[in-house]
């Protein structure tokens, strides 16, 4: 077990290091702004006084590395600075509720997509090279090739305009019941499900079929093991590592890739906030959101790696 723990610990350490490097990248990218940040935010028409005031407010008079550490330790404590746009709210209070919404939407989609994708992937692997498999191949390829806004608008057109059974805009008032919430966010969740299910399904199929050429699969067949059992008992346990990886990748995508879907459905999540902040050049918010997204992404990848280490029988049962 010692080896396994060292491996996991190493991976954790590496993940933290990556996060640190990414935070440096995010922070100092803004430093690359030509000219003065405050000036850039306020535009050419600003008076020197207002620029100076903003500089003071943003702490721009200190050297960059000090501001970086202030920002980083602040971020660890949950203080992400203040918004550059009046009324200069704390960034955390701007992001907080929206991040919950984004997480909710991502979780909603994941709960549907992950089990469906893995079981469909296994089924398609079992039915490989049949008509069903070919059709599934074309459909999934089409689904992953379509931009999210295309799928989103098609769903709106069909289920909100032509057959009006779902709302086109996913607004979430604070006082709705959970069931009502699920209903209102159904279309954006479905859009996400369509995209990630196709991808996960293809990867699950590929991971299993990849293993079907292994001698131990032939051995199982020559032992008289029925086809479904060959897949479920002999191929699947060895395919977990790639499957876990693709699931994590798609979960990460769900959290970060919702930006487009949020815009299509005018859903009040972090994605919309980010797009808004980018066009208004509200850098404290952009930095904070980027950092949160990157951290989520890194954490999920980390979880996937640890997961594949833990499901590897060679590592789990050392010599």
């Amino acid at each position: 077990m010692g080896d396994l723990l060292t491996l996991v610990a190493k991976r954790l350490g590496y993940g933290l290091l990556t996060l640190l490097v990414v935070s440096i990248l995010i922070f100092f990218a803004v430093e690359l702004l030509p000219g003065d940040t405050a000036q850039a935010i306020l535009g050419q028409s600003a008076t020197p006084d207002t620029v100076a005031a903003l500089r003071e407010e943003l702490g721009l008079n200190q050297p960059a590395y000090i501001r970086y550490f202030d920002w980083l330790f602040g971020a660890i404590r949950g203080d992400l600075g203040v918004s550059a746009i009046p009324p200069h709210q704390p960034v955390i209070s701007v992001i907080g509720p929206r991040f919950t919404h984004t997480l909710f939407l991502a979780a909603y989609a994941a709960v549907i997509a992950v089990p469906v994708a893995i079981s469909l992937g296994v089924i398609v692997a079992l039915l490989r090279n049949t008509v069903f498999d070919r059709v599934a191949n074309v459909l999934t390829l089409t689904s992953i090739s379509s931009p999210e806004f295309f799928l989103g608008y098609i769903l709106i057109l069909i289920f909100a305009v032509k057959i009006p059974i779902f709302p086109a805009l996913a607004t979430v008032p604070t006082d709705v019941s959970f069931g009502e919430l699920l209903y209102r966010t159904f279309l954006p969740a479905l859009t996400l499900v369509l995209v990630v299910t196709a991808h996960m399904m293809r990867m699950t199929r590929a991971a299993i079929i990849n293993l079907l050429a292994s001698p131990y699969i032939e051995m199982a067949r020559l032992k008289g093991v029925p086809p479904w059992k060959v897949i479920v008992k002999h191929a699947l346990p060895n395919a977990w590592a790639p499957i876990i990886n693709v699931v994590a990748l798609n979960l990460a995508y769900l959290v970060t890739g919702v930006v487009l879907v949020e815009v299509v459905f005018v859903y009040p999540g972090v994605g919309q906030l980010l797009v808004d902040a980018v066009s208004k050049r509200n850098f404290p918010v952009v930095q904070a959101v980027s950092l949160i997204f990157a951290a989520t992404f890194i954490l999920l990848n980390l979880a996937a790696d640890v997961g594949s280490i833990l499901t590897n029988p060679r590592l789990r049962h050392p010599k």
Partner: peptide, 20 residues
């Protein structure tokens, strides 16, 4: 490559576009 890939692509491009 690890570092670049650990920032979600859409987020990374939004960050860069907001700056440049």
């Amino acid at each position: 490559a690890d570092v670049i890939m650990s920032i979600p692509s859409l987020i990374f491009s939004l960050l860069m576009l907001s700056i440049f």
